[in-house]
Design a protein around this nucleic acid. Sequence first.
RNA 1: GGUACCCUGACCGAGUGGCUAGGUAGCGGUCUGCAAAACCGUGUACAGCAGUUCGAAUCUGCUGGGUACCU
Length: 290
Amino acid sequence: MEKTLQVILGPTGVGKTAYALRQAERLGCPILNADSRQLYRQLPIGTAAPTAEEQARVRHYFVGTLDLEQTYSAAQYEADALALLDALFRDHDTVVLSGGSMLYIDAVCRGIDDIPTVQPETRLHLRQRLEAEGLEALLAELRLLDPVYYAECDRRNTQRVVHALEICYQTGRPFSAFRTGQVAQRPFRIEKIGLWRERPVLFDRINRRVDAMVEAGLIEEARSVLPFRHLNALNTVGYKELFQYFDGEWTLDFALEKIRRNTRVYAKKQLTWFKKDPDVCWVNLDEEAP
RNA sequence: GGUACCCUGACCGAGUGGCUAGGUAGCGGUCUGCAAAACCGUGUACAGCAGUUCGAAUCUGCUGGGUACCU
């Protein structure tokens, strides 16, 4: 029988966790988390990760499995998720994948090109050159090393320009040579369910969830990871704002308001991404019985 | 009651006579490697009224609102 991966996606705060639990219990299957920040074990409150009770109801994977200091990427997630799915499909016909990290979901569903992982030394080297010489100098170099990518890339997006150069340097080949744009075939069926709510309803849920997080101990959680603030895992809504509060730059009220706003901005970006995926079957949760 | 200063778009904020600051939010979008990231597009606002001037957010007067100090 053909196996099915049921992907539950949608903007932050829409209700993916609860919906995924219901689906998994109905189907008698486990849940794979597809949220890039819930992977970190030190961030359960601020990322609204499934609670211990919820995890007792349904077996979850990829929740709290990483340490903040571990670097991770969509490509690694793709490999880990595919390996796990291969094992899980031996015992289950359907598996639920639930989360809001757009690139992570695409990595599992459509695949990511095989590009080498950038070595820390390469990354550091280019970061230093960026600071010393500026973006213009790096762009001039990219133009020589990879004219194809230079022609098509967003030259104002420093992150992308630097990454292309990292690959050029590390492999001795142009970055564009690794970009095939090919969509991978998977040995299972993919069913995407997009959870949707009217924007005012969604934004209201987000605002109230921030208050709930604070009550649950968000501030203490953020303080406990303060020493790791420079890590990418903490370039995350809910933490970066509280760091400003700890620094004395912002009042607590202002930081919390920023968290609400930035969460809404994130939800909008997710919607922009998910909306263009024609494979998504949308479910309006506003119209469902409570 | 008097004196001084202030009033810029949803918010913050620069601008002292002609050259639509900028930022944040909002709205729209890009994105196959740090993705809760990064980046792009989109707003002719200057408290009100009258006046000076070819031309006023910028100068003058009055009105309204605010702040500080004095009595």
